[in-house]
Design a protein around this nucleic acid. Structure first.
Lengths: 234, 234
DNA sequence: ATATTAAATGTATATTTTACATTTATTACC
DNA sequence: GGTAATAAATGTAAAATATACATTTAATAT
């Protein structure tokens, strides 16, 4: 809440509210993080997450989408609030709390260009540079949450193109959990949820035989959730 | 982050930052929520969570503990950040974001007094009054998170006294999940984690025979976590 | 036609979860 | 002091789920 009962709660002091985005993407079967080279002082030239102050007339989620759009050119991206970071001295300049949000995007050639114009770079998850302030902590927390959420939500699908193959899906989960999975058991599991729709097309980019493309069926997923089931993979 | 790259990020506007506490307790085997009757305008007399503005020289978590202490007299309470609520018009008076944190406390006679002095009341989880602003939403989110977290963390122990019986523990989990559990299977499960220490005492308050008291072994729990295991109950 | 390569598939075993009923320790009452 | 009452404590068999593991298949390139 806000103002409540006794007087001692009424110390009213404004502060800056920022939002920082932990942007995950998948490229060549590797889970990557989008990191920005900071252009303003202090700490100019250092690697950092992308962020912004939240405006007075702007919802928190809207601020996150705005930051993401400005940094990548993408709209309506899958984004989820992680948590807020509010140590009093987390930012040396002024008191500022930051609401971290994490995004999952599909890396493609188009937005790779926009990304580069911003001095940004995709780093593999296990080869990240040091980031400014508490951003390293944010990334660790986001990874933990991504892994946790991926167990119960079909989050992975946000990272893949609309049409994808089972081997791609498996690679994604292997990237998230940093663990090899058995292809037979993996297929058994994902098919058991009944949320994959097999298409008549094949992706032949990785083999002569080609792999069938699938798409995700959101209606079945909703049914699955309502029936109280868990979408647990890996 | 905070300030980063292009100019458009540099719209710097301060706002109020509040923290609201979702306080859960367990009483007579029922999961309860501590709710406060608001004493100041606007919305005076309505039910509300307890909260406060975060001070400039105060960490977020410290603010949460302060609110909790002022409302219940308790210190060092188990508390976990839930998420931040930042719709631009969530508070009609002024722009304010609220970081919700949820607490688990042991209800006992001592702090029941302090609680009443603040015009507060414990409500059963399935019989809550309407709360002001977005507080209903916060409670729903907190319940979902409590249920989620209880699967993987021994959160339940925060709600019980130091010494507790297995039937008490089972009632707690039944209250959290709103579901009856089988006593044989429940015991099998909790004992399998090897984190309960049987004491030589019995609690005879609920039966002639009495039920053995147990306490929680944090060291074993740490070991369990490190070995990569899941503390999954129910 | 043949070689090559990733995609696709099934089965047996181990583990975990579920369902279910009786005995036991203690107190209160007669 | 024996008996009734009551919640605590316990085990086992069946079902469901997870794991481990090797071969066949479809398509292309030579």
């Amino acid at each position: 809440m806000t103002q409540n009962t006794p007087d001692f709660y009424q110390v009213k002091e404004k502060m800056y509210v920022a939002t920082d985005c932990i942007i995950f993407g998948l490229h060549q079967g590797k889970l990557k993080l989008l990191v920005f080279k900071r252009k303003v002082e202090p700490l100019s030239g250092e690697w950092s997450l992308i962020g912004s102050f939240v405006r007075l007339d702007e919802d928190l989620e809207v601020a996150g989408q705005r930051v993401l759009h400005e940094a990548t050119g993408l709209e309506n991206v899958f984004m989820q609030q992680l948590k807020s970071y509010g140590k009093k001295d987390r930012d040396p300049g002024y008191r500022c709390i930051s609401v971290a949000q994490y995004a999952l995007i599909r890396i493609d050639d188009y937005n790779e260009q926009v990304v580069e114009e911003h001095g940004a770079k995709w780093f593999e998850i296990d080869d990240l540079p040091a980031l400014i302030l508490d951003h390293d902590l944010m990334v660790q927390d986001a990874l933990r949450q991504l892994r946790q959420n991926a167990r119960y939500q079909p989050i992975g699908f946000e990272l893949l193109p609309e049409k994808f193959t089972i081997p791609q899906l498996q690679l994604l989960y292997e990237a998230i959990y940093q663990k090899e999975l058995d292809p037979r058991n993996f297929r058994k599991k994902v098919f058991s949820f009944n949320v994959l729709e097999k298409l008549d097309e094949k992706d032949k980019s990785t083999s002569k035989r080609g792999a069938f493309l699938y798409k995700f069926n959101y209606e079945n997923y909703q049914k699955l959730l309502k029936s109280g089931y868990n979408f647990e993979i890996a």
